[in-house]
């Protein structure tokens, strides 16, 4: 009985979740007069802004992810090895960005930086630190979980007693053991940045979601086609990390 009910719930959920995706697929890849077609999609993709703004989003995603990893891995390493008593504070700080909605952050950024460093916000790259902050709650937690899952102290001591210096220990012992957590954190960061709309549009930077929003006003069929591809792409990216998490840990255990 319970098995039947659970299965029924899951089937119903799957059907309901599919409605907007299927609709947007059908709407995006067909025209009332011509039937199935790629024309709306191709029209949008051949727009030179599509390439530029997708590239901008990909660049921002890459830079944000690298910056977050470069900042958080040494910080977490230090916290876990030398300063475990400060871990709760660092964790509390990492969820702080959830309190400040994106539109609120934009207004604060305008007030702060237009007065002090006027040129800063006009550069697209000024989004990177804000994106690191916005993605911090999820990225910090997934990296921290990786650190908690390994016996860091023993690994570092073993590596040191075998004669490895700190850099060698970091590169050959610590990082390989954190591979799954780093991949999870990176995929989350990339997905969130690729989809971020509020900061980009309100700080007047042309990223992929801004292009998508613009397309929606000019050609709804193309927007629907891009929307379904974007949503399915997000699902693919994020399910890659559940696979990464499931794979048995390999690395410097030999």
């Amino acid at each position: 009985m319970s098995r039947f009910l659970r299965t029924a719930v899951l089937v119903l959920a799957a059907l309901l979740f599919a409605v907007p995706l299927v609709s947007s697929g059908v709407f995006g890849f067909s025209l009332p007069t011509t039937g199935w077609t790629l024309d709306p999609l191709l029209g949008a993709v051949q727009n030179s802004q599509f390439r530029d703004q997708l590239l901008a989003s990909l660049t921002l995603a890459l830079l944000t992810t690298l910056a977050a990893l470069a900042l958080l891995i040494p910080t977490l390493l230090h916290l876990h090895l030398r300063l475990p008593q400060a871990l709760p504070v660092a964790e509390a700080l990492s969820v702080l960005p959830m309190v400040v909605p994106a539109v609120a952050l934009v207004n604060g950024a305008n007030l702060t930086f237009r007065a002090t460093v006027p040129g800063f916000l006009t550069s697209m790259y000024s989004l990177v630190p804000f994106y690191v902050v916005l993605t911090l709650p999820l990225v910090y937690r997934s990296l921290d979980a990786g650190f908690r899952a390994i016996d860091l102290r023993t690994l570092v001591q073993a590596s040191t007693s075998l004669g490895a210096g700190p850099i060698r220990t970091l590169l050959r012992v610590v990082l390989p053991n954190l591979r799954a957590a780093m991949l999870t954190a990176s995929l989350l960061s990339v997905t969130l940045v690729l989809g971020e709309y509020a900061l980009a549009t309100l700080l007047l930077h042309n990223t992929y979601p801004v292009f998508l929003a613009q397309t929606g006003q000019d050609s709804p069929h193309a927007a629907a086609a891009l929307a379904v591809l974007t949503l399915l792409g997000t699902w693919l990216l994020l399910s890659a990390f559940s696979l990464a998490g499931r794979r048995p840990r390999t690395g410097a255990t030999t």
Binding site: P20, G28, G195, Y197, L212, G216, L231
Partner: peptide
């Protein structure tokens, strides 16, 4: 944005 357009298409 993509979710909004998917719903508009539906």
């Amino acid at each position: 944005v993509p979710l909004a357009f998917a719903f508009i298409a539906a």
